[in-house]
């Protein structure tokens, strides 16, 4: 490894260790409900939800609540994927996710496995991603935090009849640990220019603009960037994106195909998979 890589590794570890203590203190105070503004903000939520935050539960009630909550999560996420075709925020007009894939994804995201057995951008509507997948990213993580807390309380209290309140733990983990952290990370991503909007996809438009006044993507000669992007764009018609309205891309593809040694992308596939 280079010196820069070692420095990066050391800086990362130092930052991680330096953040562990203050973050742990924050999590402890927030999950314990010791912060005054947290108490004030939570009070109306408990009233709305009909939860007595001081009323602790035994392990059976706690477990049952956790299982019930996540079972409802599976149902909601499955239903959302199956119904996305008739729901709003679906500018690409995606149909329902296939029942087996929808069930797989629902179970996977509720259990924090987050296995993406689907092509995100060509399968899930914005609504499904925001109201289903992203919500479960929070709730499954909150479930993990709640389980750890219940376990710690069970150990720490030796012989106690209760291990906390599952609804209080889930709400506090989500509101005061996961949401603030994700807000900070979202700002970092936005600061780096990550695109996030509710508009229809603008596939190929950026590329068309880049090639309008240039023969190649980088510099004045073909580079690995051209080869790489060509390999993806060659599949655009199969993915439902016609290349008709993009003359600069069409001309660029012809230039690549005229390069010495060019072979079609399918020639890279194993013999049995070739069309």
């Amino acid at each position: 490894m280079s010196a820069a890589a070692w420095v990066q590794l050391a800086a990362f570890l130092a930052l991680l260790l330096a953040l562990a203590w203050p973050l742990a203190r924050w999590i402890d105070a927030a999950m314990d409900g010791r912060l005054a503004f947290v108490q004030r903000l939570e009070a109306p939520l408990w009233r709305l939800a009909g939860v007595q935050p001081g009323a602790e539960q035994g392990w059976r009630a706690y477990t049952l609540g956790l299982l019930l909550f996540n079972a409802l999560g599976v149902l909601a996420l499955y239903a959302l994927q199956r119904a996305q075709g008739v729901l709003p925020l679906n500018p690409q007009a995606f149909g329902a996710v296939a029942h087996d894939s929808a069930f797989n994804t629902a179970v996977s995201f509720v259990t924090n496995t987050n296995w993406q057995g689907y092509g995100g951008e060509s399968t899930m509507s914005y609504l499904t991603q925001m109201l289903g997948l992203a919500v479960q990213n929070f709730l499954s993580a909150a479930t993990g935090i709640a389980v750890v807390l219940a376990l710690v309380r069970g150990f720490a209290r030796h012989s106690a009849a209760s291990i906390g309140n599952v609804w209080v733990d889930l709400v506090r983990a989500t509101l005061w640990v996961l949401l603030p952290l994700s807000f900070v990370f979202a700002l970092a991503l936005a600061g780096q220019g990550v695109v996030q909007n509710l508009a229809p996809y603008t596939a190929l438009k950026t590329l068309e603009g880049a090639l309008a006044n240039a023969d190649w993507l980088v510099g004045r000669a073909p580079t690995i960037a051209d080869i790489d992007v060509y390999g993806a764009v060659a599949y655009a018609p199969q993915a439902g994106f016609g290349l008709d309205g993009y003359p600069a891309i069409a001309a660029w593809m012809k230039r690549i195909e005229a390069l010495p040694g060019f072979g079609p992308v399918t020639s890279l596939l194993p013999q049995a998979s070739r069309p």
Partner: peptide
């Protein structure tokens, strides 16, 4: 449909925000 949905979601979020701010400012009423 998207605009209606977003407007409804926005109103709901605004109502929750007002509710929480009110709870923060006048906790004795909650």
């Amino acid at each position: 449909m998207d605009a209606v949905f977003l407007a409804a979601a926005g109103l709901l979020a605004a109502a929750l925000f007002v509710y929480l701010v009110a709870a923060l400012l006048r906790p004795e009423d909650f």
